[in-house]
């Protein structure tokens, strides 16, 4: 399905990305080109093939034991926040 400006707007909204109206046309063109290129995968028969979502060889590591290890990053983290309200991170109202 060809990518047009309306699709760009839809996915930009999903991704919380502001795209300037002047740019929408160009993104649509570029995405359409790339998706056109990846169409070649449709030619391949992948029936019965397991998907690979990660490549992990070798022995499996153990899971983490349930033991508390306190971190000392809190103050640095809060100090680096764009906006804070006491010990909270502060953001505009969710409406």
């Amino acid at each position: 399905m060809p990518i047009d400006v309306s699709v760009v707007r839809k996915i930009a909204a999903l991704a919380r990305l502001r795209i300037e109206p002047s740019e929408e046309e160009r993104y649509a063109r570029e995405l359409d080109g790339i998706l056109g290129f990846v169409e070649q995968l449709q030619a391949l028969d992948v029936s019965g093939i397991e998907p690979t979502s990660q490549v992990t060889a070798g022995e499996r590591p153990a899971l983490r034991p349930d033991e508390v290890c306190a971190s000392d990053v809190r103050d640095e983290a809060l100090a680096g926040a764009p906006e804070r309200d006491g010990d909270y991170f502060k953001v505009p109202q969710v409406v």
Binding site: D66, R74, Y88
Partner: peptide, 27 residues
């Protein structure tokens, strides 16, 4: 005792943002 993906404590009612680490802060 700890969170599902990091070793922070799960104690209820701790003062704000005290049971956090780089992992659960999503750094």
């Amino acid at each position: 005792k700890t969170k599902i993906f990091c070793p922070c404590a799960t104690t209820f009612g701790a003062s704000p943002n005290t049971q956090v680490c780089p992992v659960c802060l999503g750094l």
